[in-house]
């Protein structure tokens, strides 16, 4: 076996190298590959988890923003409703006040009218009584100054004149 000897193939060395390789394989597997692979997996899991978490947080904040916006909208609507209501109430109060004032005024006017009427009535009554008094007075005078037709005539005219001036 010249070739084998020239190249240096020998069973002892071969077996030693096989064992060497297996030892290296075992050492690297336990010291290197396992921990590193575990670490790589762990890290990628961690990164994935963080990214998921970030995504979740983003979504949550988005949702919270939406919620806040919704609430603001609602509040604004509510505020507007309250303002509108207040305006309505104010309007109504104003209307009521106006109505009240008008009623009051009408009442006053009616009362004044009544007063005027009564006063007129009273005046007329007074006038009438005065007129009656005058008539009686005139009659007395007529009777007193008697039978002077001329004087009679003048007296009556005088009384009438007095009454018209009174009637005015």
């Amino acid at each position: 076996m010249g070739l084998v000897e020239n190249l240096g193939i020998n069973l002892g060395s071969l077996i030693a190298y096989l064992i060497n390789f297996l030892i290296l394989l075992a050492l690297l597997t336990f010291l290197g590959y396992r921990p590193i692979m575990r670490m790589l997996d762990q890290r990628s899991a961690k990164i994935k988890e963080s990214m998921d978490q970030a995504e979740q947080i983003r979504e949550e904040s988005l949702r919270a923003g939406e919620e806040v916006k919704g609430k603001l909208d609602e509040a604004r609507r509510e505020g507007q409703a309250i303002i509108a209501q207040a305006a309505q109430v104010g309007e109504r109060v104003k209307e009521e006040a106006r109505q009240e004032a008008r009623k009051e005024a009408e009442k006053l006017i009616a009362k004044a009218r009544l007063e005027i009427q009564r006063e007129g009535e009273q005046a007329r009554e007074q006038l009438r009584q005065e007129f009656v008094g005058l008539a009686i007075l005139a009659a007395e005078r007529v009777i007193n100054e008697t039978l002077d037709n001329k004087a009679h005539q003048r007296l009556i005219e005088q009384v009438l004149e007095e009454s018209t001036s009174l009637g005015k």
Binding site: L24, L31, I36
Partner: peptide
Amino acid sequence: FPITNTMIASWLTILIVVGMVYAATRRVRL
């Protein structure tokens, strides 16, 4: 058992590689 110089070199290689990997992974951190 005859030890060849290549055998010694391969042991050296194993020592260095394992030493390096061990140093790197002794405290594996995230």
